[in-house]
Every structure is written in structure tokens, then in C-alpha cells.
């Protein structure tokens, strides 16, 4: 169990003007699973490699249990990285791959064999010791790669998009397996992903990185209810952004005045609310109810997406198909925005 602290971590590759990772600060609780979330090229792998010691930071510090490890050789840090493309050693059997870290540590052969079969059981691949990596499917190879990392009982497990090369079905299965094992072994884990759903389902906390900068670090639900800024809200599927002023618990905008939750920030800013929180139909007490015109309606299978015009503003809503079956495009439709689901982005 290791507490990980990243302080002011920066990486600028030679010959590049923009830093790949800029002044990153992150505290990861011992034994927790944190998702490092961000689009391609935002610096996730670079961050992981710096934590593992495979890349030298331009500036900043990394601490394991409050001790700087920046000068400790990667092979002695105990931070094991698992890559997207498995990277099993092709010339070794599965048992040799999994036992690699133990063999390096000169552990007794009999103990290695025993630990290897235990850990293979744990990743639900019992009895494949004598097979070769080329004989396994992608999902199996990634589970072996995971076993190879777990067997050394690392202080820190760094998973760099481990599920990106797998199809959806396998992804769900492995996601649960990783969560399961992480809970059981209690290894502090950083899980890198560009898939917000994966991050939300898997992690205790999510760190969102955009353009090499940490935008928000919080429990998963906070990203939906209290996004830090517009880019964060958009990354998590937010589509409604309306300019106006927040004062005394109400938001004044062109489309009218709306009641806000009590903790909403004050000042000029942007009102945001999630499409799935827009209620079609007037509220019972008439609170935050607006008259809109339905401009578009798209059936998405399990949901229907509606575009609703309120004056010059367009509001996107997602509703249960049954609830909005009767509405036709160009029809006048009342909608309501429950105050608890609103949030204001200032600055």
C-alpha cells in the first residue's frame, strides 16, 4: 500500500514548445484506484512513464509515501507498468513471463512456480503455464501481462490503457476483473484511459487531463454534477451551455430566470445542465419551467434526443422514448430544469 504524490510534474520533450505534461499535481490515496482520464496525446503515458521512472521529468517531484523517489532507479521503485499492447516476451512460456519479476529477484524456483499458478488462477487463466504468448487471444495476453505485474506485489500498479485493444465485451469483463483484484490485493493503482465511462465505472476517483493540464480531480459523480469548466463538462457529454449571471440563487439569462442550487457560484458565467436532466413537461409547481419549441427529434434506440429552442437558445435533452412519443417537430413543448441539476461555471 503506497500513497502516491505528484507535485508540479512537468515534461517538455526536446524540440517541443508545448509541455506534454504541465505542472501536474495529484495525490493518490494508498490502496485506491484512480483513473487518469484524457483524450489521445494529452500526456497520460508520459505521466505514467515518469512515475515508473522510464522518463525523466523536466521539473517536479514524485513521492511514494511522502518520500521522493525521483532519484531512485526505475527497477527499484516497485512501480510496475502494464501497457496497452501487452508486451509479453514472445520467446518465453506463460509461466516464464509471469514469473519474470520473481526470477529477477532470485526467488526460489519452487516458490516461483507456486506463485505463478496462484496468480494465473486469480486472473482466471489456470493451467496455461506451458503455453506461448502467440497461442493466446488479446484478452488472455492482457490478463497474463496483468499477472506478470501483480506477481511482484508492486507498490504501485500503472495500467496504461490496458483495455483499449480489446472488443467491448472483453473490455467489460476485464474491467470488472481488474476492479476485483485491485480491491482484493489493495494495490494502489493508476488506470489510464481515454474512455470516460471506463474511468467512471472503475475508479474511486477520476483525474481529468486536458492539454497536459489537470482540469479536475474528484469522485466520478462530481464530473456530472459539478464540472470544473466547460471543457470538462463537454468531455463528459455535457451539451447545454447558456451565458448569463448568477446572483442570489437565481440565474438570469436571455431565456428567463432560473432557480439555482444553494451552492452555485455567483457572478457572470455559464449555466450548464446535463441533457438527461432536462424534464419534458412543466414542473408540478411551475419551478424553472420554460416554453420551448421542438426543433429536432432523433431516436437513438434506448433513448431519444431532442433539440428544443427557447428563444435563441437551443437546449439538448435526452429522454425515454416512451415519454416523448407524442411530440412532433415544431410543436410547442414545456420543459423544466430541476434546480438541483443546474450548475454555473464562472471565470
Amino acid at each position: 500500500m503506497t500513497h502516491l504524490a505528484i507535485r508540479g510534474l512537468t515534461k517538455r520533450f526536446s524540440g517541443q514548445t508545448e509541455a506534454a505534461v504541465a505542472d501536474l499535481n495529484l495525490e493518490i490515496e494508498s490502496g485506491s484506484l484512480v483513473a487518469l482520464l484524457g483524450p489521445s496525446g494529452c500526456g497520460k503515458t508520459t505521466t505514467m512513464k515518469m512515475v515508473a521512472g522510464l522518463l525523466e521529468p523536466t521539473a517536479g517531484d514524485i513521492l511514494f509515501d511522502e518520500k521522493s523517489i525521483i532519484n531512485i532507479a526505475p527497477e527499484r521503485r516497485g512501480a510496475v507498468m502494464v501497457f496497452q499492447n501487452y508486451l509479453l516476451f514472445p520467446y518465453m512460456t506463460i509461466a516464464q513471463n509471469v514469473g519474470y519479476g520473481l526470477k529477477i529477484r532470485k526467488v526460489d524456483r519452487a516458490i516461483i512456480d507456486q506463485r505463478v499458478s496462484e496468480i494465473l488462477e486469480m486472473v482466471r487463466l489456470p493451467g496455461i503455464e506451458s503455453r506461448r504468448p502467440s497461442e493466446l487471444s488479446g484478452g488472455q495476453q492482457q490478463r497474463v501481462a496483468l499477472a506478470r505485474a501483480l506477481v511482484v506485489e508492486p507498490r504501485l500498479l500503472l495500467l496504461d490503457e490496458p483495455l483499449s485493444n480489446l472488443d467491448a465485451h472483453l473490455r467489460f469483463e476485464l474491467r470488472d476483473l481488474i476492479r476485483d483484484i485491485q480491491q482484493k490485493m489493495g494495490i494502489t493503482t493508476v488506470f489510464v484511459t481515454h474512455d470516460q465511462e471506463e474511468a467512471v465505472v472503475l475508479a474511486d476517483k477520476v483525474a481529468l487531463i486536458l492539454d497536459g493540464r489537470l482540469r479536475q480531480y474528484a469522485d466520478a459523480d462530481v464530473f456530472y454534477k459539478r464540472p470544473a469548466d466547460e471543457a470538462t463538462a463537454r468531455f463528459f457529454g455535457g451539451q447545454n451551455f447558456i451565458s448569463g449571471t448568477s446572483a442570489n440563487g437565481t440565474f438570469e439569462a436571455a431565456l428567463g430566470s432560473l432557480k439555482l442550487p444553494s451552492d452555485a457560484p455567483e457572478g457572470t458565467g455559464i449555466l450548464t445542465f446535463r441533457p438527461e436532466n432536462v424534464r419534458i413537461g412543466a414542473a408540478a409547481d411551475g419551478e424553472n419551467t420554460l416554453q420551448a419549441k421542438l426543433t429536432d427529434k432523433i431516436f437513438l434506440g434506448t433513448q431519444t434526443r431532442l433539440k428544443l429552442a427557447v428563444g435563441d437558445d437551443i437546449i439538448t435533452a435526452i429522454a425515454n422514448p416512451n415519454d416523448v412519443e407524442g411530440y412532433l417537430v415544431d410543436q410547442e413543448v414545456p420543459l423544466s430544469l430541476p434546480p438541483a441539476t443546474l450548475w454555473v461555471l464562472t471565470k
Binding site: A52, L54, P74, E75, V80, N85, F89, Y100, G101, I104
Partner: peptide
């Protein structure tokens, strides 16, 4: 260099 990176993070020194 990723194969070597994996080995290194698993504890292998330069010669190993």
C-alpha cells in the same frame, strides 16, 4: 524500447 521498459519496471537491471 517498451519490452525493456516492462522488464525494468519489473525490477530488471541493465545487465538483466
Amino acid at each position: 524500447e517498451d519490452y525493456e521498459a516492462v522488464a525494468q519496471s519489473l525490477g530488471a537491471n541493465r545487465w538483466q
